[in-house]
C-alpha cells in the first residue's frame, strides 16, 4: 500500500445554479462527488482512499447559502459556512445549541471554509476505514475495529451492526435535538427527511452515513419554531480543544412547562453511527424540574443497552456525566 498526498486528476464542475448541480448529480450518480468546504474531501482524494470521476462544487450556488427566517422557523442553506452559523444573531437567539455545536467543529480555519452540509454528511473517522482498508463500510467482509485487540477507543457503544464506526459530526447532534428537517433535492424534486431519519445506522446503510441517495443533494436544513428559544445545552469532550472529533458530545433541548420539563431532546454524539437520542432519559425527564437532582436521577438511563468495545467503556460514565451537566448547568 503506497502513501499518497497529491490531488489526482479529477474533473471539477462549478455550477452556479442549483438546477445544473442537480442535473450533474443525477447524471454522475455515484461517480460524482459533492464538494462543500472540501475539508474532508481533499483528504480522501489525496490519500487515494476514495475516488470519483468528478467533483461538483456547490459553493458557487447562491441558493445554497444563507440563513433565512421562514414561516415556521429558520432555513439554513447547506453551503453556509460553519463560521457564519457560529456568528449568526438569529440562530444564537433562537437555536443557540446549533451555533454552540458549530463553534466546536475542528478548528477556526476549517470552520471558515467548512459548510454545514459538509459537516452533516461527513464520513466517519474510524481510523481503519480512513486508512483505505476494505472493511464492511468500504464494501468488504470484516471490521478491523471490532476485533479482540482492535484499537477502538473512539468507536461506538450503541447501534453497532458489524461496523462500529461513529458519526463525527458536531452539528448533527444539534440537528436531531432541534427536530430539524433535512431538505434533500434531486432532479425529481425535494424530499423532506426528519433529522432523526437522515443519519443512518450500519444495520441498514453500512456503507453510508446518511440516507441521501446518489443524485440527491442536501440543499438546506429547516429548524422548526417548535424549539425556538428553549433551554439548550451543548458540550463536546475531545482530546484537544481544537481539531479533534468528539469522544462524546451532547446536545440537549428542554421545553420547560412552568418550572418542569415538558418535552426534551437529549442527543449524544460520538457513541453511535448516528446522533444517538437518549429516549429513556427524555421520557424520564417529563414533568421533572431541571437541576442536579434530576440529572442524577436520569443519568444512568443514558447508557442502558450500551455495548462497549475493548477500549471505549469510558464513554459510558462520560455520557452519564454529560447528561448530569446538561441538566445542572443553568440555561
Amino acid at each position: 500500500m503506497a502513501s499518497f498526498d497529491v490531488m489526482p486528476h479529477i474533473e471539477l464542475y462549478k455550477p452556479t445554479e442549483l438546477a445544473d448541480a442537480l442535473e450533474l448529480a443525477d447524471r454522475l450518480g455515484p461517480r460524482g462527488w459533492l464538494l462543500g468546504g472540501g475539508q474532508d474531501t481533499y483528504g480522501w482524494f489525496k490519500d487515494r482512499a476514495k475516488n470519483a470521476e468528478a467533483m461538483i462544487d456547490l459553493n458557487g450556488i447562491e441558493a445554497l447559502h444563507g440563513i433565512r427566517e421562514t414561516a415556521d422557523g429558520i432555513e439554513i442553506g447547506a453551503a453556509t459556512t460553519l463560521r457564519e452559523i457560529v456568528r449568526d444573531p438569529l440562530l444564537n437567539e433562537r437555536f443557540a445549541v446549533l451555533p454552540a455545536a458549530a463553534a466546536r467543529v475542528a478548528s477556526p480555519q476549517i470552520r471558515n471554509v467548512g459548510t454545514l452540509g459538509g459537516n452533516l454528511v461527513q464520513d466517519t473517522r474510524c481510523w481503519y476505514y480512513r486508512r483505505g482498508l476494505a472493511c464492511y463500510r468500504a464494501g468488504g467482509n470484516l471490521c478491523y475495529a471490532d476485533s479482540p485487540q482492535g484499537m477502538n477507543r473512539e468507536h461506538c457503544v450503541f447501534g453497532a451492526s458489524r461496523c462500529v464506526a461513529v458519526s463525527p459530526s458536531d452539528t448533527a447532534t444539534a440537528m436531531v435535538a432541534l427536530d430539524a428537517t433535512m431538505v434533500a433535492t434531486s432532479v425529481d424534486g425535494e424530499r423532506l427527511i426528519p433529522a432523526g431519519r437522515f443519519f443512518a445506522l450500519p444495520e441498514t446503510h453500512i456503507t453510508r452515513m446518511t440516507t441521501l441517495e446518489p443524485g440527491e443533494i442536501l440543499t438546506a436544513v429547516r429548524l422548526p419554531a417548535r424549539w425556538a428559544g428553549k433551554r439548550f445545552y451543548f458540550e463536546k469532550v475531545a482530546d484537544r480543544d481544537v481539531w479533534d472529533f468528539a469522544l462524546v458530545s451532547i446536545a440537549a433541548a428542554f421545553d420547560l412547562d412552568g418550572g418542569n420539563i415538558g418535552d426534551a431532546r437529549v442527543v449524544c454524539g460520538g457513541v453511535a453511527a448516528v446522533p444517538w437520542r437518549l429516549r429513556e432519559v427524555e421520557r424520564a425527564l417529563r414533568g421533572r424540574a431541571p437541576g442536579a437532582d434530576t440529572g442524577e436521577a436520569v443519568a444512568a438511563l443514558a447508557t442502558r443497552g450500551a455495548r462497549p468495545l475493548n477500549y471505549n467503556h469510558f464513554k459510558l460514565p462520560l455520557m452519564e456525566n454529560l447528561v448530569r451537566r446538561a441538566l445542572r448547568e443553568p440555561a
Partner: peptide, 11 residues
C-alpha cells in the same frame, strides 16, 4: 481524558 474518567468512575 478516558483514563481520568475511568479512574473517577471507579472503573
Amino acid at each position: 481524558a478516558d483514563m481520568i474518567v475511568n479512574h473517577v468512575a471507579g472503573r
